[in-house]
């Protein structure tokens, strides 16, 4: 186990460094830089040169990368070119907000999606299945920006209510925090719940047609035991894999809901950094997304062993 973890850690470091190079090059491939953004279209060439030197953009790319990664490995991600704030602080603050959204979305999707999927699978081709499949189709077909907008408009027109526009952390006011997050989590959660439900249904239907289930039923094992011991256990591993994938997807894809509901998370930070070509923030935030994805994958792998002790991590 220790060797496995050490190997995974080493591989993760290599992946992170490679990802950092890709991220570094990609953000610089976007047309226009921070100087063009700051000075606008009619900038004076001398002022542009002076500012470019000020930000180190006159250096070769590999020199810029060397300076950045050298400092980053020592925990210094620099300061934002736009705001002058420490990147580590900005990214950490934003990441905590996004993590809260991701975890609450995951919880909502699991609580709604998994039971629906089980029900749908067990009642394959019966009316509950048809009803749930319809929900799944609608959930999967509706883009998150549309669901978010509809929730916003419905809440406004039917209840005369809209979420506050200033984010409050759970520690500041849990009530405010939840009232800000309720619509975005519903928008994301309904989509995810549909995906979970569809995934679980397919696995349940597939398991119901397996020999071991048929044998168990033929041997007279009670339906409850067949369901919990044979079906649920066997779909646990693919479900955990799927949840890991979905969590990674939420972490990297909350840009739309964060923008729609004015939530200061990682997605909105990334969007603003792209707009202002704030390379230090962009690099720091993207690196956090990459590392978070790697950690989720590692967590999923470790969970396999918890779920099924026969799994050997080597």
């Amino acid at each position: 186990m220790t060797r496995y973890l050490a190997r995974r850690f080493a591989a993760s470091v290599v992946t992170a460094v490679l990802a950092s190079i890709v991220v570094f090059l990609i953000v610089r491939a976007v047309p226009g830089d921070v100087v063009a953004q700051m000075l606008g279209q009619t900038s004076d060439p001398a002022a542009s040169r002076s500012l470019r030197a000020f930000f180190g953009l006159d250096q070769p790319v590999w020199v810029q990368y060397g300076s950045w990664i050298g400092a980053a490995l020592q925990g210094d991600f620099g300061t934002s070119w736009a705001s002058g704030r420490p990147v580590a602080m900005m990214v950490t603050d934003a990441f905590m907000v996004t993590l809260e959204i991701a975890l609450l979305t995951l919880a909502l999707a699991s609580v709604v999606g998994v039971p629906l999927g089980l029900l749908s699978g067990v009642y394959e081709d019966c009316w509950p299945d048809t009803l749930i499949q319809t929900f799944n189709l609608l959930g999967l077909a509706a883009p998150v920006f549309w669901t978010g907008l509809m929730l916003l408009v419905l809440a406004s027109s039917m209840l005369g209510w809209s979420p506050p526009l200033v984010y409050a952390a759970p520690g500041e006011s849990l009530a405010d925090n939840l009232s800000i997050l309720v619509l975005p989590i519903l928008a994301l959660g309904l989509l995810q719940a549909a995906a979970y439900s569809q995934f679980v249904r397919q696995n349940v239907v597939s398991a119901l047609h397996q020999d071991y289930v048929r044998t168990a039923i033929a041997k007279g094992v009670p339906a409850r035991l067949v369901f919990f011991k044979h079906i649920l256990r066997n779909i646990a591993i693919p479900l955990v894999t799927f949840m890991g994938l979905m969590l990674t997807q939420i972490l990297g894809g909350v840009v739309i809901v964060e923008s729609l509901f004015a939530i200061p998370g990682l997605g909105r930070l990334l969007l603003t950094a792209i707009q202002t070509r704030d390379y230090p923030v962009l690099q720091g935030a993207l690196l956090v997304v990459v590392v978070a994805a790697m950690l989720v994958n590692l967590g999923v792998d470790l969970l396999y062993r918890v779920i099924d002790p026969r799994v050997r991590l080597a």
Partner: peptide
């Protein structure tokens, strides 16, 4: 003066109508 940054106009319009802005 509390200046709230609202990144899209749909949310801003809802906020104007609901007197949050």
């Amino acid at each position: 003066i509390n200046i709230l940054f609202v990144p899209n106009s749909a949310s801003l319009i809802v906020a104007l109508r609901n007197k949050r802005v």
